[in-house]
Simulated assay, not measured.
Amino acid sequence: MSDLHHYLQPPHSGYHDGGWLPHQPYFEGWYFRLTLPNQGASFAFMYSIENQAGAMPGGAAQILGPGHTYLCRTFPQIHNFWAWRHGLGLGHWGKAREAQVPRYLKPAVFAQQVLEGYQVTAHGHQGQLADPGSQAVVRWQYGVQPLDTCGDRGKLPQATAGWLSLLPIFEPGWQVLMATGRATGWIDWYGQRYTFINAPAYAEKNWGGAFPQKWFWLHCNAFSQQPDLALTAGGGRRQVLGWHESVGMVGLHHQGRFYEFAPWNAQIHWQIQPWGHWRMQAENADYAIALEASCWEPGTWVRVPTAQGLQRWCRDTTQGHIHLKLRHRHTDQLILAATSDLGGLEVGGAPWDTPWQV
């Protein structure tokens, strides 16, 4: 765990493991995204673990690859999952050459010993998974240099959902672990090898007893002509002490500065179609931001933890078009405008029969 001391990790980086609800259904999930702008490609790695009290205890690894390709593998042996409690570090083994206690291994040792599984920390990510349908084996290994977590660069990281997220009152919790990072390494994806140096990387996590009833999400840290810009935004109907509320958030990191639009400091509105079009507007005391995103491809249905186990309840793309404008609120002076065709866009939960407007 020596890499924990290289930089300050944000709150919730460590594994909660049910925390205050050890005998209740509980999940923890992680999302790691790697974007390759020069190749117009993106990879999203989604890992989850559900505890013994859940309806379907166990773990899963999902990867959303270029061209909406998708791979999912489950890990029913929950005892083969490991995670650090005081920093970002987790892994799950499916098959290993020798019987041993699952734990973090040096990359060369992992590659030799673990036949199927993954491991990830704040500074590295590797794994290999077999596709039983095609018999292909997908492999990856890359190092990461974190730049921005959640908050201004170089300052103490903050909780994405505010200090109240440290208390067990929200379902689920949400934390941006790394808004901006630089990844160097390789991915072998169904016979094609992708190599990269200083590619944009991102990480976040969720935890709790259930996903929101309904939610949407936007992400991008690979904007044209803006190499030091990262956007994370979303909204959902979440549970708070037994009742539900609709909340949204926009976080923008630009050249080390964090622009936050959250329920405690801003007015936030959105108009989200069931699929294909996302719009958000937010204003705080000093700034105003406008987001517009679209995707005319069908996207990919991915699995999320539910009371009935993993279900295809979430629709994703990593090829969305995003356009944003940030202005000074009082002078209307434009601070920046940016676009990308490598945006991450998502809708999940239900119902999505009509547009959602708040």
Rank of each mutant, 00 (worst) to 15 (best):
P66T: 04
G251Y: 00
R312G: 04
Y194F: 13
P263E: 08
T195I: 07
L241M: 15
L336Y: 10
G143R: 11
H23D: 11
G208I: 06
W356A: 08
N80E: 10
I322F: 03
I335T: 11
G18S: 12
V137C: 13
Y7K: 06
H6S: 14
A41Y: 01
Q62D: 04
P10R: 00
E50K: 05
Q311L: 08
R312P: 06
L177A: 01
W217Y: 05
H321C: 10
G344K: 02
Y287G: 12
L105A: 11
A183L: 08
W82M: 07
D188K: 06
I49F: 04
I289D: 04
C220W: 03
Q77D: 13
L336K: 10
R279C: 13
W278Q: 05
E204L: 00
Q333N: 14
L4C: 05
L36G: 02
Y26S: 09
I187D: 01
R257I: 11
L324R: 06
Q192R: 14
G256W: 09
Q9C: 01
F261E: 06
D17W: 07
S294A: 15
G67M: 12
P102R: 08
R33Y: 02
S13P: 04
H68S: 12
Q126F: 05
A266P: 10
D341A: 13
V138K: 00
T149P: 00
P168I: 06
G124A: 12
A96P: 03
N80R: 12
W93M: 09
R279H: 14
S246N: 15
R329Y: 15
P76V: 04
P355K: 11
Q333H: 13
A210D: 05
Y15L: 08
G236L: 08
L326Q: 05
R103M: 13
G234M: 01
A96R: 07
S42M: 02
Q281P: 12
V138C: 13
I78Q: 11
G59W: 01
W186P: 07
G59L: 05
W352A: 02
Q255A: 14
D17S: 10
F261H: 05
R193Q: 10
G87Y: 02
V114P: 02
W356N: 06
L310E: 00
A201H: 08
H330I: 15
A288V: 15
P25H: 07
Y26V: 10
T232L: 07
Y104W: 13
I169F: 11
P298N: 06
H125I: 05
E297I: 05
W243V: 13
D353M: 07
A99P: 09
Y190P: 06
H12I: 03
G276Y: 02
Q226E: 15
G349M: 08
Q100S: 14
R85H: 12
T306Q: 07
H6P: 02
T195G: 08
A55K: 12
K325Q: 15
G256A: 09
W82H: 07
G208R: 00
H23A: 14
P22K: 07
F170H: 04
H269G: 15
L90W: 04
G65H: 03
R279W: 14
A230L: 05
W217P: 00
A233P: 04
G127A: 03
P22C: 06
A307C: 13
S246Y: 14
